[in-house]
Design a protein around this nucleic acid. Structure first.
Lengths: 124, 124
DNA sequence: CAGGATCCTGCTGGATACTG
DNA sequence: CAGTATCCAGCAGGATCCTG
């Protein structure tokens, strides 16, 4: 056990310069999952789905995801404005891994909570 | 498209109170993947594997993961000290989903980078 | 070597108000 | 409705120094 690790690419992969940097962001992951599940949402519906996100942060998040080619923006002229967002082809490939993570959380939340309580009460 | 979403549990799942809150943290995910790949690492080897992490942050990260029951700490008496960390049973169930995410990043990094450049040069 | 204690800064992201 | 523009607080996390 405990060999000299040859896997030090971590920083490169997770660095601010690459794709996963975005996925260590709570909001980005939630937006991608929301869009993946629904197949497409308007700005306001996204705000409702991703609880607690502010308009400002949602806008920024969407711009970043758009920039990374994960989300497509569709603007329909008219008043009041109406804008829809959906995952791109690329974004859809990301949805599965993220979904898996979400599933894990749902399934193991209880165990984590229990572990936490055990840990806390052990040193009190 | 764009129905009223019934899936609003997002905040609950990702909230600071549950398990995934930890996984939107770059450092935590890197540590879990590193431990999963190696099967166990000493503190110093973790520092080497998870590039760029400071001792302070690594310590905090490990404590949190330990508290959540994802990581086990083994202290071997002696001087100099020697402490090994490994994933618990629970932690190992998390490794797969995270690994999948890491794989996605490696496979699609180029596409994301390309999308980014396209986006940037389009509005310059 | 493993990590606790401190100090300090940047950036995330919340609140609020305004516009096409 | 879908943003943009400010202003600002909190906290993650880096640097540094110290100890069992």
């Amino acid at each position: 056990m405990s060999q000299n690790p040859e896997w030090t690419a971590s920083a490169a992969i997770w660095s601010t310069r690459t794709s996963l940097a975005r996925m260590d962001n709570k909001w980005s992951t939630m937006v991608v999952i929301a869009l993946g599940r629904s197949g497409g949402l308007r700005f306001r519906d996204l705000r409702a789905t991703v609880e607690g996100i502010s308009a400002k942060v949602l806008t920024e998040t969407l711009r970043d995801l758009e920039r990374d080619g994960l989300v497509a923006r569709h603007e329909y002229a008219g008043m009041p404005p109406r804008v829809e967002y959906e995952l791109t082809e690329l974004g859809r490939t990301l949805h599965l891994p993220l979904q898996a993570l979400g599933l894990w959380a749902e399934e193991h939340a209880a165990q984590v909570l229990a572990a936490r309580e055990a840990y806390d009460s052990a040193r009190r």
